[in-house]
Computed example of a mutant assay.
Amino acid sequence: MKRKNICVLPGDGVGIEVTEAVVPLFEALELPVTLNFGQIGWECWRAEGNTVPQATWRLIQESDATLLGAITSKPQREAQAELPNHLRHSEVPYVSPVIQLRQRLSLYANVRPVTDVIGDERFRFTVIRENTEGLYAGLDYASVPLEIEPLLLAKERQGASWQRIDRHDAAVSLRLQTRLGVTRLLRFACDHARAQGFDKVTLADKPNVLRNSSAFVRDILEEVAADYPDLQLNIENVDAVALWMVQRPERFGVIVAENMFGDILSDLGAGVMGGLGLAPSANIGEHGAYFEPVHGSAPAHAGLNKANPSAMFLSVALLLEYLDFTEAASRVRSAVRQVAQSDVRTYDLGGSHSTTEVAQRIIDTCLTLNQRGTVRPSQLTIPEYN
């Protein structure tokens, strides 16, 4: 197999720690990959007012996939306050590096597997969230735009409760969904269902309230369904989906949703699994893919060597699968499951072991599954990020 280039971006906080813990896995499994390290996140912002340096963009473009540890994001006011003095009054806008990656690379599908890691495999499903449109499309206004004011006046004439408001005394966010965006997402969800052996795809929306926009999406769903006769496609209210995810998660195969609904459901899925420390993610699109655990940078835990590395290992498994290292990906998942069900656990799962201890046990277990023994892999050197 041709050697693959992986861009590794440790990021901030515990992202650096879980990245350092997982990197030896690549050497241990003797995979034909080259790891190229770059910088991203809060410290880049504090140094130069740019969360994704140009050198990092070049590195991403030269790589087959990107592994991201975690990044810290703060509101605009706090972000401006931490800029270097010479940039503090330059009105440099803070844009989350995650949003930049998704939009610039057109990574429209956020993939969040939800598996029973710590139980007896009672459930296995995937939440797929649209990444570029929906309520997070950027059409968010602190006052009502003049172009929208006639729509409010029309509703006022129909007896709406916000009669005679001043446009500066209201805020508006618009949910944008395009035929292209919805169609490619639904097709991605169906292809994922087939690849993972699922027979059901559930679109989570709110058709009983958002009647027109949901009807638009439902029509596209029915068009796509015609090309997937082997799958059962249906639309359900997002609140009902949330309830059944908790009470009967085994009823789902693939759950697909627009950006905000998918954001909420995917974190609920992490809770169903047992916590963010177990939840991996993939962001896949037209111009590449990146993979990251969803627990964030957790600044309060940074430097304590206590973060659960399992989500990072499971994210690596998604990355390996994306690069066609399917056998290695399967072994990583099995190793994470075995260790999560052992007495070697981090604090979030009721244990007292460190990040590095749990990571080493997962790597050793991978080697055992590979019938290579349990010899500890040599440690790779990771550059420091100041």
Rank of each mutant, 00 (worst) to 15 (best):
139 L>I: 10
130 E>M: 13
193 A>K: 06
156 E>L: 02
135 L>D: 08
218 R>T: 07
136 Y>N: 14
206 K>P: 03
157 R>S: 13
112 R>F: 06
197 G>E: 00
159 G>E: 06
170 A>W: 04
199 D>L: 03
200 K>W: 02
200 K>V: 04
204 A>K: 11
191 D>L: 14
178 T>N: 10
217 V>C: 06
209 V>I: 13
211 R>Y: 04
182 V>T: 14
122 R>V: 11
136 Y>T: 04
205 D>R: 00
147 E>L: 10
190 C>L: 03
166 D>L: 09
141 Y>D: 07
144 V>R: 10
126 T>R: 02
144 V>L: 15
189 A>R: 01
162 W>E: 07
204 A>E: 05
131 N>R: 12
126 T>M: 01
125 F>N: 07
124 R>T: 07
139 L>Q: 13
215 A>S: 10
219 D>L: 03
186 L>Q: 00
164 R>I: 05
210 L>R: 02
198 F>W: 01
172 V>M: 04
126 T>I: 09
143 S>D: 14
162 W>A: 06
152 L>M: 13
149 E>H: 06
189 A>S: 11
161 S>E: 05
111 V>K: 02
137 A>C: 11
162 W>N: 13
178 T>P: 13
133 E>Q: 15
174 L>N: 15
190 C>D: 10
137 A>L: 09
149 E>V: 11
197 G>K: 00
203 L>I: 06
160 A>G: 12
175 R>I: 12
219 D>A: 11
216 F>A: 09
160 A>W: 15
126 T>N: 05
206 K>C: 02
128 I>Q: 00
137 A>R: 15
123 F>V: 05
175 R>E: 13
217 V>F: 03
211 R>Q: 00
131 N>E: 03
145 P>M: 13
127 V>W: 04
178 T>C: 12
220 I>K: 05
180 L>F: 15
215 A>L: 01
150 P>H: 03
217 V>D: 00
118 I>F: 00
